[in-house]
Design a protein around this nucleic acid. Sequence first.
DNA 1: ACCAGTTGGTTGACGTGTCACCCACCCTAG
DNA 2: CTAGGGTGGGTGACACGTCAACCAACTGGT
Lengths: 154, 154
Amino acid sequence: MNATPRWLNPEQQAAWDGFIRMQEKLIGRLSRRVQADSRMSPADYIVLAKLTEAGGRMRFMDLTKLVEWEKSRMSHQVARMAKRGLVSKEECPDDGRGAFIVATPAGREAIEEAAPVHVEHVRRLFIDALTQEELDSLARISNRVLAHLEKQPD
Amino acid sequence: MNATPRWLNPEQQAAWDGFIRMQEKLIGRLSRRVQADSRMSPADYIVLAKLTEAGGRMRFMDLTKLVEWEKSRMSHQVARMAKRGLVSKEECPDDGRGAFIVATPAGREAIEEAAPVHVEHVRRLFIDALTQEELDSLARISNRVLAHLEKQPD
DNA sequence: ACCAGTTGGTTGACGTGTCACCCACCCTAG
DNA sequence: CTAGGGTGGGTGACACGTCAACCAACTGGT
């Protein structure tokens, strides 16, 4: 049929399938837990975490780059979070287009409450499954893939 | 503050952050590629792949369990795919509630066209980044996490 | 001073995933 | 045969992510 089929060999297939399955189940479980016991989505969590980590007040685009999202995604997200009272927007005097994103007291409270619970789930579902060597190995592999991705087009 | 902070140590944190970043970027890139050059979403891809692999005709719930999805998700997905002509639904004579999901000719054609491209992207973005030992190592780690998840509550 | 290009940020449409709830049909105990 | 529970499957509302287009404000060069 195809001049260059190049299917994966069994070991490669096993690695890919296993990774995909693991990642789906792990992320799925974790985000459902986060949502269930902190009434925050994973997206809320990471945005608030990075924001408060940086002092609770940031320019929109800086925040967007910090979490490595597309600006449109962040814009929608911030709008939703503002609606829920987790953050608010302020105008930027230096740049007429600009906006500051500010964590509200409710937002700070929410993340401070959610953070330990989140860490506990990460530990329980992921860290505890693996030895330190396995964790190191996974970190190395992840960085290799990340470095590879940066070199690849698209 | 907290009686049991138990934050992650630096190595654990590095492993978790690296994994999360890698997984997000990799999955993101791959699904955008799939969508861009086959006009199918990753969800379409996996459903059609599993379905045709099983002969192109399956009971709804069997398919749902095969891909390990929630039934509601599959229901929505199948509805969308039916709207796009990739699959169709048939009644089940044996069980009045039941439904068969059938891959249409267009669906078969779509997956046969998409599959090699998909594999090529997986290879280019992921497999090629790693040695065979690293792939094996990742497969082992994934299976450990999966096994651990099954033992954990929630 | 002006205009072209870039940057900061928003918007709307659309596909997707989840949750909660629903309904219809099947099955088994009594 | 019938009530009650389980199973097969659908639905509607909502949160989320992407894409493409858009607008306003800031550059820089001429």
